[in-house]
Simulated scan of single mutants.
Amino acid sequence: MENIWEVSPLHRQVKSEGEMTDLYKIEIRDLARAFCGALFLALPLHYTMEMWARARAIPSFMLVVILVAAYLLNVGYCYYSNFKGRPARQVPWLDALESLGVGIVASTITLLLIDQVNAHMSFDVIMSCIALESVPTSFGASLAKSQLSAGNKEDDLTDGWATDKKKILACLLGGLMFAFNVGATAEPIVIATSINYGQLIGIVVFSLLVSYLMVFMTAFEKEKEDEGAVMGPQWAETLICYSVSLLASAALLFMFGYLTPTTPHNLAIPWVVVLGYATTLGGSAGRLII
C-alpha cells in the first residue's frame, strides 16, 4: 500500500471520501478533528481545581516522566483510533507526537482563557499547568476519530496482533483514559478513608462483576472472539484485566502525588481499590470499543 505521508507533497490531489481533494486540506481537517477531540475529552479537567493544585505540587522531573508516559500511551491510542483518516497516512509513533502537540496547544489556549495561566505566574508554574493538562487533552486528540465520527474498524492498525495483547493493551488504555478524570480529584481518597472493610471487599467484587457482565454477558459485543491462549477462560480474563486496572490506578495515584513508596499499605490498598472501580469500568469499555 502506498504511503501518502512519505511520498506526497501537500498540494497533491488524493481521494478522500469519494472525492479528489488537496492533501493539505485533509491534513488541516485531521488536525482540526484532533483539536476538537482533545477539548471534547479533557475540557472538564481544565475546570477542576485539583488539577490546578496537583500541577503546582508535582516535581518537574515527575512531569517529564508523565509526558514521556503520555507519549507512549498516545502511541497505543493511535494504533486503535488515529485522528487521521486513512491507514496509509497513519504513523502512530509520529502521530502520537502530533497528538501531544495538539494537546499542549489546546490546553494552553484554554488555560489562558480561563485565567489559570497568566503573566503574574512564574514560568515553572505555567509550564507545570500546561504539561499536566495536556496529558488528557492529547488522549482526546489521538482518539478524536472514534469520539467524533462513526469510525471504521478497517482502519484498525492492530489487525494481526495476538488477541490477548490487544485485550490487555485496550484494558490499560481504556482504564487510564476513563479514570484520569477521577484520579486527579481528592474524592477517591476521601471515599477510601470513610469506607469499612466490608464496603472495600464489596467494591472489589462489584468491580469484577461489572467487568464480567460488560464484556461477556451483555449485547455490547456483537461477536465473541476466540479466547486467547494466555488469559484462557472468561473468569481468568476478568481477573487478569482487573489486575491491570489496579496497576493503572496505582500509577495514576502515584502520578498525581497521592501515593508514594512510603504510603502505608492500609491506606494505599483502599485508595487503589476505590479508584480501581472507575479504571475497571473504563478498561472493560476499552476491551470492547477501543
Rank of each mutant, 00 (worst) to 15 (best):
I4F: 06
Q13G: 07
T21Y: 02
T21N: 06
Y24R: 06
I26C: 06
R29A: 12
D30G: 07
D30Y: 05
A38I: 07
L43M: 13
Y47V: 06
M49H: 12
W52T: 10
R54T: 03
A55F: 04
R56V: 10
I66C: 11
I66L: 13
N74D: 15
G76L: 01
Y77E: 03
C78D: 10
F83W: 07
P87N: 05
R89A: 14
Q90C: 15
V91H: 11
P92N: 09
I104G: 03
V105R: 05
T108D: 04
T110F: 07
L112W: 00
I114G: 08
F123C: 09
M127P: 00
A131S: 15
V135Y: 00
G140N: 01
S142L: 06
A144V: 08
A144I: 07
S146F: 01
Q147F: 15
D156N: 13
A162G: 07
I168W: 01
L172W: 09
L173N: 03
G174M: 06
M177Y: 07
F178M: 12
F180D: 02
F180S: 07
V182C: 11
G183K: 01
T185W: 03
I189M: 14
V190C: 02
T193D: 15
T193K: 11
S194N: 14
I203H: 01
S207L: 08
L208Y: 08
A219P: 07
E225G: 10
E225M: 12
G228P: 04
G232V: 11
Q234I: 04
A236E: 02
E237S: 10
E237K: 01
L239D: 04
I240N: 04
I240Q: 01
Y242Q: 11
L252R: 01
F254I: 09
Y258H: 08
P261F: 00
T262M: 09
T263I: 10
V273M: 10
G276C: 09
Y277D: 10
A278N: 13
T280F: 00
G283F: 03
L288F: 08
